[in-house]
Amino acid sequence: MADGKSILVDVSRCTGCRGCQVACKQWNGLPGTRTKQTGTYQNPPDFSHQTFKVVRFADGKDKDGKPYWHFFSDMCRHCMNPPCLAGAQGDEMIHDEATGAVVYTEGTSKSDFEMSLSVCPYDIPRQDPDTKVMYKCTMCFDRITSGLPPACVLSCPTGAMVFGERDAMLAEARRRVDILKKTWPKAQALNADDVRVIFIVTDDPLKYHKYAAGV
């Protein structure tokens, strides 16, 4: 197998427009979820069995009193060695050889959801309360195996998200981090060797989201 595919998410370019979030819902035919105003633009507040992509909004003040407002377009990282697959018995999950995408099937209704969630460093899987089927981002498996980019990547107006061969994405990540470091010394690509969805952040990952860099 070649090195498969990767998605690069450079949050320094993200404007928090949430086009990716809507594109994900639209392509996957997922309904809106009833939510409440929580005082942030982040909505829905978290993943669900009907929400595979959430742009997380984090704001606060640095030690020097300077305010920050970070956007983090959170999604499944499609790990190189997915811990959620470790307990899989049969056909409940697919780790596709050609692309590297980790895809859950309806067979996950028989999986131990609590276990899958607890081993995920990024707090990704969610369960349908009625059918017990587990859901998360599929890397748009149907699209990428038909020559189309994932819906979220296609929609990104600023080029914060890029999809392509893993080698090329790793090289692009290095190139972008080198450039960003000049302005933001903390710029880094999060766990680039372990995951296929590589986030580039310009600040302490914990400031974006609790699980931005994994547990």
């Binding site: 427009c17 639209q26 929609s155």
Partner: peptide
């Protein structure tokens, strides 16, 4: 389905939250 047109000179396939919906 309605999605961004990658060959469009203005947007190259991208859409914001309104267009994506």
């Amino acid at each position: 389905n309605i999605e961004g047109d990658p060959e469009h000179p203005v947007s190259e396939g991208s859409l914001c939250a309104k267009g994506a919906g």
